[in-house]
Design a protein around this nucleic acid. Sequence first.
DNA 1: GGAGTTCGGGTAAACGTTTCCAGGCGCTGG
DNA 2: CCAGCGCCTGGAAACGTTTACCCGAACTCC
Lengths: 382, 382
Amino acid sequence: MPNGGQPTIVSIAERAGVSIASVSRVLNGQGARRDTTERVRRAAAELGYVPNAVARSLKGGRTRQLTFAMPDIGNPVYVAMVRAIQGVAKAAGYRLLLHSTDAVAEDELAVLRSLRDRTSDGLILVPIRITEAHIDALVEAARPVVVIGSLPPGVPVDSVRADSVAGAALAVRHLHAVGRRRIAFVNGPSDTVPGHNRERGYRSALAECGLPHDPELVAHTDFGVDAGARAMERLLPARPDAVFCANDQLALGASHALLGRGLRIPEDLAVAGMDDSELAKLGWPPLTSVDLGSSERGRRAAELLLDRLEGHGGTPPDPPPAPEAGSASDAPGAPGAPGEPAPRATASGTRGVPTRTSTARPRLVVRASTAPAGATEAMRFA
Amino acid sequence: MPNGGQPTIVSIAERAGVSIASVSRVLNGQGARRDTTERVRRAAAELGYVPNAVARSLKGGRTRQLTFAMPDIGNPVYVAMVRAIQGVAKAAGYRLLLHSTDAVAEDELAVLRSLRDRTSDGLILVPIRITEAHIDALVEAARPVVVIGSLPPGVPVDSVRADSVAGAALAVRHLHAVGRRRIAFVNGPSDTVPGHNRERGYRSALAECGLPHDPELVAHTDFGVDAGARAMERLLPARPDAVFCANDQLALGASHALLGRGLRIPEDLAVAGMDDSELAKLGWPPLTSVDLGSSERGRRAAELLLDRLEGHGGTPPDPPPAPEAGSASDAPGAPGAPGEPAPRATASGTRGVPTRTSTARPRLVVRASTAPAGATEAMRFA
DNA sequence: GGAGTTCGGGTAAACGTTTCCAGGCGCTGG
DNA sequence: CCAGCGCCTGGAAACGTTTACCCGAACTCC
């Protein structure tokens, strides 16, 4: 025991009277004679042997660790992803390394570069924004990377994205369907891909419903509860009868602002959020929200990554159901011709396997905050 | 480049025309002649060299990784801890490995055992319950461990705990102070240490305020929003005028149940929660809650652990302010004689440094859900 | 000018595994 | 009975570092 007293393969070999090669073979389940196997097993058990994962990694070149890097662990959306990723990783025998980038682009690049230090076998990255530097770093990445978010076309990196254009449209159409006509929109920063796309979805759904686009009904702000409340205050003079918020935190902030002024939800204003995080259920009244599939995206990203790592990466992802016509993809580039289905896997790829892109389909979850006007009228006077 | 094409210390040595020892020395900032230093630096830069962390760990016996294991990443309390721990770890140059035990005791023991695989340098563990097996595993742990939670006295393991007895009492006294007399209590499982202690705090504060203890006003349930709602429903027939819940999720569930029945908060019933998680601010009305210092406990735990790891573990923790008289410690054992201050550091310890125990002091955060009866009456008829 | 000192750098061992290779032994088939 | 073939097994190399040790050269001091 020259080291910290922990038994090594050598201690076992000595105790069992065999060579270290035999110990390794037995412990890894390779063939050996009956009594050899038994002696090694017993010695290992008696000494309480546990293989040194570091040495194993050095030899094998794999650490069985994955890294998940996202902007902010405080956001329930990322918590949902962490949970999903951890589930997949654990089942596959991988550990999960967590990295919070605090939404700093430089930190994201550092994570990408640090893949060279061999600490983890692969990375799931949620970038806040994609710059040229990001693309370069992604292409140069020393290990497989899966991006959660939208990538410009042609970047040879697997990705999983949400169709937030369609998601936003879903919410707006729902508000229209329950009788709202002046639908306000509290968006996050418009210079991010999601911000841009949610606005696109909002406007296209307005048009589709035959509603005019009134700039007075739109506010841009940061993400965050207080930001949502302030934005709502600013929008009130424009007399909206509904508000759609780009995420649940904004929506809760907006709700607080409304309730604080004595307004009723949904009677006076309907409120809808986005992400369908834990918060949506917990708000009062419970929030209608668009589920962009955070868990599913996390799970899918982990699966894609593991697939690359395990090498049998040939199996193409089960193609998600084709999006309904008119719902554009989340990519910044122009979608293909309307009639033609969006390509689900591009040609170029790493290690021979084509790059895969998976899109989670948005789903509307209706709760009390957008109960139909008719129904609430009835309730109110019941 | 016999490996994955990544440069090693050998590639650099060849390119710079020096030995690998010199490369290592230069790169680790040890003395070398001017031109040697320069040649090595340049070669390393040109090749884009990044040291192999695994090899380094094998040699050095340290991975610069910490593990944080908690029951459920979905709980905002643990999210707060993750964030705090990640902050401390990152600043000290450590990576964070996340492990969700799903509140399975066997999984906790597995984590403890897996410390032998040398994957991480230390562990911060939030056990759901402490069994004999836990104590054995803790004592045998191959690496330093810090427990967040209450440990029986005498276990030579650093720990950080919340004074939930005092915290619960704080909430109950507050409800009494704002004029409530029939204070219900929705507790979590009573066979956990926190459940036990919160109940103790509740009862002692009732006694202190001269209120009778009515078993009809107490419900035990699981943690979770729905559980809180159901428990509240069950308690309503006992006609409480306030309810104190053992965490914010339960409190939100209770709020939902009340609001759903058309009751007003705080006019009809005041609601108070515990943990002061994100949820408290986000509820409607915003919840009064007792901050048990989740972030602080996380931070403190990380600091204690790093202190053990970095070896200069001599510095005793700044002794927390003595708890006010009457507030018992969180340990399951009987507290010392009332007059005598609880011991803040026990004698036995690992590696010569005495075991340290740090207790976070609870803090009441008052919000609208418990506005004083008088004030709300005034408001209501204003 | 020689001995002692200092400094810099090279060689090699070590961390704990896995795995390639070759040798030994027993068995089978001719 | 011998050749040949497998199966086991042990020795040794390799993964990429850090570091103990040693050697040579330059310098200092008497």
